[in-house]
Design a protein around this nucleic acid. Structure first.
Length: 233
DNA sequence: AACGCAGCCAACCGCACCAGT
DNA sequence: AACTGGTGCGGTTGGCTGCGT
């Protein structure tokens, strides 16, 4: 039995105060990130290390992009979710300035509903004949979101939350499942490792978060058992 | 004005992963 | 190989806010 990450009796919980935020920012600016377990004490915070890490990553990081998601960001999230499932950190890694928590929340509060409204099962990105499909133009694929089109799903064998996604993806089955009179759901799921003229070191210096996750995405995709990626033209 | 409800989002929790020993 | 500590991730919760009645 491992001991808890901190002594919960002595730690604050709940919303962060401005003073706490400032202490955390000051400390990280001086000493850099890492050593989250010892950081709270060193920074004079009565917080659990995990809590500090979360606060920094999700809220205080200087490279965070706050505010509404753009259309292309929405599209990308939908595509990546079809590809990766609920692996929010990987998805967020493709969206500069966005955090896994933010993407997860946005998915659950907006995009899930949007797909459902379009008659698409948000769990597997397949047209769901049991769900009512709205007759509005939005539901025909010509939504405000330009490329909200899908006819695919993907087995994500390595996912820890594989329950959301079918273990085996059968392309033949898909083509058979989708009625011919449905809108063209051609979804380009091409995914590539971010290319950069910067060296890996330079890239990591400029954006350690994006770089780190991008590396993981690339590794995951490389390691994926064939045929994990099934792209449908 | 008061209340109930739904949606959003920050934060917490528990588990898994990984590197070091 | 087994163990341990630190870190990361995804699911869930709870409080706040806005809206309708």
């Amino acid at each position: 039995m491992r001991k808890p990450c901190c002594d919960k009796r002595d730690t604050n919980k709940g919303a962060w105060s401005k003073q706490e935020d400032q202490k955390l920012i000051d400390y990280i600016q001086k000493h850099g990130e890492g050593s989250w377990r010892t950081l709270p004490q060193a920074a004079g915070l009565l917080r659990c290390g995990k809590s500090c890490r979360l606060r920094w990553i999700n809220y205080l990081r200087p490279d965070l992009k706050r505010g509404n998601f753009a259309e292309d960001e929405e599209d990308l999230i939908i595509k990546l979710h079809a590809l990766l499932g609920n692996r929010w950190s990987l998805i967020a890694g493709r969206l500069p300035g966005r955090t896994d928590n933010e993407v997860k929340n946005y998915w659950n509060s907006h995009l899930r509903r949007k797909l459902l409204k379009m008659g698409i099962d948000p769990n597997n990105h397949r047209l769901n004949q049991n769900l009512p499909r709205s007759q509005t133009p939005d539901a025909s694929g010509s939504t405000s979101s330009s490329s909200m089109k899908t006819n695919m799903t993907l087995a994500d064998k390595s996912s820890r939350s594989a329950g959301d996604h079918p273990e085996v993806f059968d392309a033949e089955n898909v083509s058979g499942d989708i009625p011919r009179d449905l809108p063209d759901l051609n979804l380009d799921l091409t995914i590539s490792v971010p290319s950069s003229s910067l060296t890996k070191v330079e890239e990591e210096e400029q954006n350690p978060y994006a770089s780190k996750v991008a590396t993981k995405v690339a590794r995951d995709i490389e390691n994926a058992e064939s045929p994990t990626l099934l792209l449908f033209a």
